[in-house]
Amino acid sequence: MIAIKLFWSFFQIGLFSIGGGMAAMPLIQNQVVDLHHWLSLTEFTDLITIAEMTPGPIAINSATFVGIRIFGIPGALIATFGCILPSCIIVSVLAFIYFKYKEMTVIQGVLSGLRPAVVALIASAGVSILRLTVFGESGFSTQSLNYIAVLLFASALFVLRKWKPNPIIVMLGSGIIGGAIYLLV
């Protein structure tokens, strides 16, 4: 019974979280804290912190976290499956339509308008992360400017532009070097 509830709950989260990431948070809170009392509000806040500290989409992280707490590993699997099932179905339909009709002039036009928009969305996500890194939670001000982060960002970008290495090496490198500096300072 709890397995079905878990599945259904995360199925709804997967289905209605359009736009991804933070858009899913209020939905998760509603299902997990308010409706089913699977987590307390403090535990939910912990979950968001953990989700931000670990890789992967917030919805999947939450599904695993909640699933494992109330039903062990099977719970984690069921909740995760519920969460991705709506995406799988809807994206498959869209993929089918896209690959079938992508040569049509109208669709070509739509896509040509979408490409610059997608670049803008990626840029906006990047600037948000950069702002968080450089200024912290407090927002723009010279006092909150983190010089270590500015330096790390600039050197990482320089390395990426100049030698085009594997980006994951750059991320790990800036984690290790930056982490060492933060601990020493």
């Binding site: 992360i129 968080l132 790390l152 990482a156 970008l157 991320m171 800036s174 984690g175 982490g179 933060y182």
Partner: peptide
Amino acid sequence: NGMQAGVAA
């Protein structure tokens, strides 16, 4: 925290 700068880059 260090990694965040790399991700932004």
